[in-house]
Amino acid sequence: MDKQDEAHAVAAVIDRLAKKFPDTPRTHVEEIVSEEYTALNDGPIRDFVAVLIERAAKVRLRS
């Protein structure tokens, strides 16, 4: 997955989570997704970054 594809995948994660958590401000969703992205940014395998970000962000948004 190249950086452009990854950016589109992350944007899609933000959109899905914003819809799943409508009571949470979108800026907060974006912040959490960004933090999760940063935490995974140094990983050598990029294919599942969006899935891992979404999973971790959901956990944080539920709490």
Rank of each mutant, 00 (worst) to 15 (best):
M1L: 08
M1K: 08
D2W: 07
K3D: 11
K3E: 13
K3N: 12
Q4R: 13
Q4T: 10
D5F: 15
D5V: 13
D5Y: 05
E6A: 11
A7N: 15
A7R: 13
A7G: 04
H8V: 06
H8G: 09
A9R: 12
A9H: 05
A9S: 10
A9I: 04
V10F: 05
I14Q: 00
R16D: 05
L17M: 04
L17S: 02
K19W: 07
K19R: 15
K19Y: 08
K20P: 02
K20W: 03
K20C: 04
K20E: 11
F21R: 00
F21E: 02
P22Q: 03
D23P: 00
D23G: 02
D23N: 10
T24L: 13
T24Q: 13
T24F: 06
P25K: 07
P25F: 04
R26V: 15
T27I: 08
T27Q: 06
T27W: 06
T27K: 07
V29W: 00
V29D: 01
V29Q: 03
V29A: 01
V29G: 03
V29R: 00
E31D: 15
E31M: 14
E31P: 01
I32A: 05
I32C: 08
I32N: 01
I32M: 11
I32P: 04
I32E: 10
V33Y: 04
V33N: 03
S34G: 09
E35W: 01
E35G: 10
E35P: 02
E36V: 05
E36L: 01
Y37T: 11
T38Y: 06
L40C: 06
L40S: 11
N41Y: 06
N41V: 12
N41W: 07
D42Q: 12
G43N: 10
G43T: 14
P44F: 08
P44I: 11
I45Q: 15
I45R: 14
I45V: 14
I45M: 12
I45G: 14
R46M: 00
R46C: 03
R46H: 07
D47C: 06
D47V: 05
F48L: 12
F48P: 02
F48H: 14
V49F: 06
A50L: 01
V51C: 01
V51K: 10
V51H: 03
V51Q: 09
L52E: 08
L52R: 15
I53W: 00
I53G: 04
I53H: 03
I53F: 00
E54L: 00
E54P: 00
E54I: 00
R55H: 13
A56R: 14
A56E: 08
A56F: 01
A57N: 05
K58Y: 12
K58P: 05
K58I: 12
V59K: 08
R60S: 06
L61T: 09
L61F: 09
R62C: 06
S63Q: 11
S63E: 08
